[in-house]
């Protein structure tokens, strides 16, 4: 069952087209990564589907129209920055969200515990660090046990410790069976957490589908040897090896998955090149992303 259907969504800001005929369907239970460079239209898309921006044309429908204009009651979302009343403490801020969502059975203490903020429950929001604000925002998204959770750059601006903590919480949310839509730059994270991705650039959808279908079957290989010139010449001449790049102490190239690292090693050994480094790995989402967005 699809929870969200976006049809031909377009947003113009004067002469600038922030979103151009975007079509996207998100199925229930999917963990959807929304990827794109800065200014690609990710936040605009989320703003429109959350009802805070109006589209120039196109439409979208949440939950098959089941909840009418009250669909946001079934969604928990953070858009850009965590937004709370700075003079209220964590618990009081969450109570306001509870009121808006008409959800009075939530265990506020439990939610704060979940995001590791129970000890700062009585502190005013303005006294929180960015990481704590982000964690409080995540707690707020879980109020009312929503069917869909939306995170927009949840680790933006955080220090490494903050990123690690937020990652851990996001993983827990993603594992809870909810539909998650996450706009992020952290492709490594998206690759680990998300089941599906959509790649947007300049307001246009470039690719979408399960993570596995976006990632090509090609293999990236890194090699090095004492005689780097000879090594470079040999691999450059092999027909099934392509995209050979020579770096300072390493040569990196791509090959399809019909070939193996063992085959490379054997071929080079026969040519009297003894490798001192050989690593083969599947292509990362980051590499696919860069290739798709740079086309």
């Amino acid at each position: 069952m699809s929870v969200l259907k976006i049809n031909g969504l377009t947003k113009q800001y004067g002469p600038i087209t922030a979103l151009n005929q975007l079509n996207l369907t998100i199925e229930a239970g999917n963990i959807y990564g929304l990827l794109g460079p800065n200014g690609s239209g990710k936040t605009t898309t989320l703003g429109i589907i959350l009802g805070i921006l109006s589209q120039t044309s196109g439409d979208f429908e949440w939950f098959g129209g089941k909840y009418g204009d009250k669909y946001r009651m079934r969604i928990g979302a953070i858009l850009e920055t965590p937004n709370f009343y700075p003079y209220l403490n964590a618990a009081k801020n969450l109570q306001i969200i509870q009121d808006i969502k008409h959800s009075y059975d939530d265990d506020i203490d439990g939610l704060l515990e979940k995001v590791n903020l129970a000890h700062r429950k009585k502190s005013k929001f303005r006294a929180y660090s960015l990481g704590m604000k982000q964690r409080l925002a995540i707690a707020a998204t879980l109020i009312g046990d929503p069917d869909v959770v939306i995170f927009d750059e949840p680790t933006n601006g955080l220090d490494p410790e903050g990123i690690a903590e937020v990652r851990k919480i996001l993983k827990k949310v993603a594992d809870s069976g909810k539909t998650v839509i996450m706009a992020s730059h952290l492709l490594d994270e998206v690759e680990k957490i998300c089941s599906h991705v959509a790649i947007i650039k300049e307001g246009q959808l470039l690719a979408t589908g399960p993570v596995g279908s976006i990632l090509s079957n090609d293999i990236t290989v890194e090699v090095s040897a004492t005689d780097m010139d000879k090594l470079f010449k040999i691999v450059s001449d092999v027909s099934w090896i392509y995209d050979v790049k020579r770096e300072k102490e390493m040569i990196e190239f791509q090959m399809d998955d019909n070939h193996t690292a063992q085959e490379i090693n054997f071929m080079l050994y026969k040519e009297n090149v003894i490798l001192n480094h050989l690593v083969s790995r599947k292509r990362k989402l980051e590499e696919e992303f860069l290739e798709i967005t740079n086309k």
Partner: peptide
């Protein structure tokens, strides 16, 4: 300015 209006709408209020 606190962007809580935006957050109130995101959380479920209609305009």
């Amino acid at each position: 300015s606190y962007k809580t209006m935006r957050q109130n709408i995101i959380a479920g209020y209609t305009k």
